[in-house]
């Protein structure tokens, strides 16, 4: 499971780095986003083709569609906000959304963090704010 988590972080880093490339090359982000969704669909379609089967479940399909609508509007809202807002604060706020699944894990699925984990969770907020502060300063210099 740790291997999958590490792989997830590696692929996410590739994903985030591409945003940097897109900004650097002054790409049209609306168009890039649509191609990104196309690339994702092509990738998962390739995975399904290799496996040779796709199990269907109506609830999962509905969850995927609802999540897809949320992905679209979350991205759209963030980009529109970025036209007027500050990257550092915005990115920090979005990163803090990790609080939702953590809260859900504790409240809905009764995962209880021990003392060490609780301190670690509190440190996340501090770390994210520090990153945000750096980006704000860097942005002003640039």
């Amino acid at each position: 499971m740790v291997t999958f988590l590490v792989l997830s972080i590696a692929f996410n880093t590739l994903f985030a780095s591409c945003y940097k490339i897109a900004a650097h090359k002054k790409c049209n982000l609306d168009v890039v986003n649509v191609w990104m969704y196309a690339g994702s669909v092509a990738t998962i379609a390739a995975v399904i083709a290799v496996k040779g089967r796709l199990a269907f479940h109506p609830l999962v399909f509905a969850m995927g569609v609802v999540a897809g609508v949320m992905v679209f509007f979350a991205t759209l809202s963030f980009f529109y906000h970025m036209k007027y807002g500050q990257l550092s604060a915005s990115w920090t706020v979005i990163s803090l959304a990790v609080g939702f699944p953590v809260a859900a894990s504790i409240l809905a699925w009764h995962e209880i963090p021990n003392l060490k984990q609780s301190i670690g969770l509190a440190l996340i907020v501090v770390a994210l704010v520090l990153f945000g502060r750096h980006e704000a300063n860097g942005g002003k210099r640039e």
């Binding site: 692929f11 996410n12 880093t13 590739l14 994903f15 591409c18 945003y19 490339i21 897109a22 090359k25 790409c27 168009v31 890039v32 986003n33 649509v34 191609w35 990104m36 969704y37 196309a38 690339g39 994702s40 669909v41 092509a42 990738t43």
Partner: peptide
């Protein structure tokens, strides 16, 4: 760039 991002995502 979009396709590469999609692959990673």
């Amino acid at each position: 760039v979009g396709l590469l991002m999609g692959f990673g995502g």
